[in-house]
Design a binder for these strands. Structure first.
Lengths: 192, 192
DNA sequence: GAATTAAGTCAACATGACTGACATAAATAA
DNA sequence: TTATTTATGTCAGTCATGTTGACTTAATTC
């Protein structure tokens, strides 16, 4: 498996060449080898989402609802704007999904105390219960995968996944992840 | 961050309890800790797909086209049925995307030599060129993430991602991954 | 010769993205 | 105080990509 560098057949590869140059100081991994990780990531993500997707169908929800419910539950009290920034979708797109979750009583909104324009989002008791059910198979999968990956996998995997995130997004990700709500600790988040 | 075990407030958690039992022999990871990996995986995948998605737009294609082109190029000569099994989508869903890729000259089909009902799929030269462009930012990202994850990350990450795949799918994944086409080696895959 | 299999197609529909325009209420600036 | 900006919500239309169900064609297998 030789290191292939064909300068032809590609008119617009400035980015790629820049990347190759950035890499060349250290261990040079072949494209074929790296593509294997891309495939594994695809398969892993494909199966990671399948269990909750099946459950969601019974509720008339989709994956988008799971994502919203997840971030609202785990980082309860976050603003709509925060959610948009995390999900990287448009307000209109979020709107529909969020509305359904609110209408069916899985999420509630409260006006911000400092800025009353803000709508802070909180899960209801049934919202937390639903999320728990959705997350359950994923938690099992993650625990088993970390175990299978061997000792020290937790740190390595965390570093790997973090580094896969756009550099400029990492501070925001760290910020939101540090403000995570303890599961079931604040039992009175569901206000009428 | 204490280990939270609340036996109440969840009527349908048989699966979760089973998972907890399966885990309990070894290191018990808290749900909160594990959920952090779920979030990282979401963020990683979100950003992993953003670069190629932007390029695809210029071609009037979507992520589905990238996936098809990827598997056809990297595992050229695979059957339509193989592709369906890999992608886990319906024939009709694949049909539309595949037809567009064929019509625009990125993929060609040849009847199988043993079984002439089979349509074996191959990339054209422009198909390979397009895939290269789509994969370029992902390869850079993967190489940098593996480097950032530290020594030994390649093996650990591979084991982790593999274990994230449904157990019954792993043999198939291994099988298809072992039959990967070397990039640019068989220059005459594009037959008229 | 009949049944099965691989692939393709037609039609209808759902989900979740998108753009663009506009409305409302609250905060902030002039 | 008035004007502007900001946070949110909403209407309308479009697109990509998934789904079900029914049916056809060609080739293989029983």
């Amino acid at each position: 498996m030789t290191d292939i560098n064909d300068p032809l057949s590609e008119p617009l590869d400035a980015k790629r060449r820049a990347g190759a140059a950035a890499q060349s100081k250290t261990l040079r991994r072949s494209d074929a080898e790296l593509l294997a990780y891309a495939e594994l990531l695809f398969f892993a993500y494909r199966d990671f989402t399948r269990d909750p997707d099946a459950i969601l169908r019974d509720f008339g929800f989709g994956r988008a609802h799971h994502r919203v419910l997840h971030f609202v539950t785990r980082h309860s009290g976050l603003r709509v704007a925060d959610l948009l920034d995390v999900l990287k979708i448009t307000k209109q797109s979020l709107g529909r999904v969020l509305k359904q979750l609110i209408d069916k009583g899985y999420i509630v909104q409260r006006a911000g105390s400092a800025d009353r324009r803000e709508r802070l989002l909180y899960p209801t008791a049934s919202g937390r219960a639903l999320l728990k059910r959705l997350a359950a198979p994923q938690l099992i999968r993650l625990a088993e995968a970390l175990k299978a990956a061997g000792p020290g996998a937790d740190i390595v995997v965390r570093r790997f996944l973090r580094a896969m995130i756009n550099a400029e997004e990492r501070p925001k990700v760290s910020s939101i992840m540090s403000s995570s709500t303890a599961p079931d600790s604040d039992g009175n988040a569901e206000v009428s």
